Simulated assay, not measured.
Amino acid sequence: MKPHTDHANLAWGWCAITALGDFDPDTGGHLILWDLGLVIQFPPGATILMPSVLLLHSNVEVKEGQTRYSFTQYSAGGLFRWVYNRFCTDKNLLEKATDQKKAKHERERSQR
């Protein structure tokens, strides 16, 4: 898997990742946390909590004939913006906002 961050997740949220499948954890399926310089053995059934929006991560491939799946639980940042904006998108909110409210919205956004 290509190293990535999960940019759509809630910036200060935690992501729960569970490894599933039928694979040999000694030879593949490891979790790589690139920013921390860590390669973690991650056997089927293991779960980790991590700020996936902040940490560049990927997995070591498993051998041919083996399978590895991830069950990932996260909070989408867009849902929190929707509620914060009183149940509308940033675009819709800003279309109707006064200049003063737009400035306030930008100030608050930059502080989150």
Rank of each mutant, 00 (worst) to 15 (best):
T5G: 09
D6Y: 06
H7V: 11
A11M: 04
A11K: 11
G13L: 04
I17N: 03
L20E: 14
L20H: 09
G21C: 00
D22L: 02
D22S: 10
F23P: 01
D24L: 03
P25H: 05
D26S: 10
T27Q: 05
T27N: 09
T27F: 07
T27H: 02
G28S: 07
G28T: 07
H30K: 10
L31Y: 08
L31C: 07
I32S: 01
L33A: 13
L33G: 03
D35Y: 00
D35C: 10
L36V: 06
G37H: 02
L38H: 03
L38A: 13
I40H: 10
Q41I: 00
F42V: 00
F42G: 01
P44T: 05
I48V: 14
I48E: 01
L49A: 14
M50S: 08
P51W: 04
V53D: 12
V53A: 11
V53R: 14
L54S: 14
L55M: 09
L55K: 10
L56G: 10
S58A: 12
N59H: 10
N59G: 02
V60F: 02
E61K: 12
V62H: 01
G65I: 03
Q66V: 00
T67Y: 11
R68M: 02
R68N: 02
Y69N: 15
T72E: 06
T72A: 11
Q73M: 07
S75Y: 07
G77I: 00
L79W: 14
F80Y: 09
V83F: 13
Y84D: 12
N85G: 00
R86E: 09
T89R: 08
T89P: 01
N92H: 11
N92I: 14
E95C: 12
K96C: 06
K96Q: 12
D99L: 08
D99F: 09
Q100N: 13
K101F: 11
K101Q: 15
A103L: 13
R107S: 14
R107W: 09
R109D: 14
R109A: 14
S110K: 08
Q111E: 13
Q111I: 01
